[in-house]
Design a protein around this nucleic acid. Sequence first.
DNA 1: GGGGGGGCTGTAACAGCGTTATATTTTCCA
DNA 2: TGGAAAATATAACGCTGTTACAGCCCCCCC
Lengths: 203, 203
Amino acid sequence: MPAPSHATEATRRAILDAAAELLAEAGAERLSIREVCARAGVTAPTVYHHFGDKDGLVLKVLEDSFTAFVQTVDALDKPQDPIEALARAWDGYVAYGVAHPMHYRIMFVRLAHTTPIPAATAAFQRLVDVVSAAEAEGLLVPPLEDACKAFWSAMHGVTSLIATGYLPPDAPASALVRDAVIAHITRPRDGARRPAKTKRSKP
Amino acid sequence: MPAPSHATEATRRAILDAAAELLAEAGAERLSIREVCARAGVTAPTVYHHFGDKDGLVLKVLEDSFTAFVQTVDALDKPQDPIEALARAWDGYVAYGVAHPMHYRIMFVRLAHTTPIPAATAAFQRLVDVVSAAEAEGLLVPPLEDACKAFWSAMHGVTSLIATGYLPPDAPASALVRDAVIAHITRPRDGARRPAKTKRSKP
DNA sequence: GGGGGGGCTGTAACAGCGTTATATTTTCCA
DNA sequence: TGGAAAATATAACGCTGTTACAGCCCCCCC
């Protein structure tokens, strides 16, 4: 198996880029192989030679999306305080969904864990890590697994409603749910003051 | 325009039932008009005569789903205490997603409010009502709109992860997020004790 | 340098899809 | 009973994903 030449690798990338672009525009079901071919300047059998079938192509695009997602998360600065780190991770997660709504929808909704994607498990590991950091300092109330799932559920709820257009990107609901979940799965550090709830002054 | 005969109404129902069944089995993109026709014992133009096109058919199925959803919610008993009513509404909402995962996914994810559905706004109104009940007794902290969106976001996050198979139906995360959000958007009634967090005894 | 083999790409076709123009039957009212 | 309108069927169009087949081209080895 010789190393792939530059030309063939360029073809692969052209197809993947066209597919990713089309996926973001129209969604997975409206993505057409022929349209991908037209944009990438290749013909159908080339796509099938490289990616097997349409699902294989979409899967590879999603792998790239998950990789980019992990890189986005890793690029965030990590506050020392584990609880602040949770809030930062939340905001970073939601920001990715705001920036790439269609990809987010396909990654976390349409996919529905039919095929294991390494980058996807890596992404979930980042979540476990940031929650574990709170646990390591004795700041976690429920078991780690429950806390992770609760955190992810709430985060996903906010993000998916934004990604589908039900909520505006800057909805106060995001911070509201974020603070609620963080407050509920963590205990205040000894001697530290928990940040107050966001309140509205009522005359 | 004569009233539709029993026969024609029966074919409508046969088509709708077949479509709803197929939708729950395979999802919207894999629903095929021809398969619906085969199951309902009709031919394609009949479907197009009654529902316009495939989207129209799916839309009608979703209308029925939303109506059933509202009926399910309305059938729940409503505790006097607004905060307990919030928890009950949460559980009812999640239970519907558990019972009809594919329909839930299509109703709240794929649809993405492209077309207004009266029954859908009625469903949202039920949510507003139960949150308003808490506000009416002065138990709400954030503005009503923010509280509704936060409540819905968290509820949808839990439900959609269950509906897509990421979380088991009886995940403790549901109760965890539920209690977190309710605790955060409401204030304790004077003289009432807020139910304690679920804690694990640590030796 | 020249075969030659194998990965890569194009041609042309198939079955299935949503959709519709047209024709035919059925139904209901005057 | 006649006739109009609603309801259904036939057959076809263009599109889709997919693939058998054939040719190209690059790279390795003699």
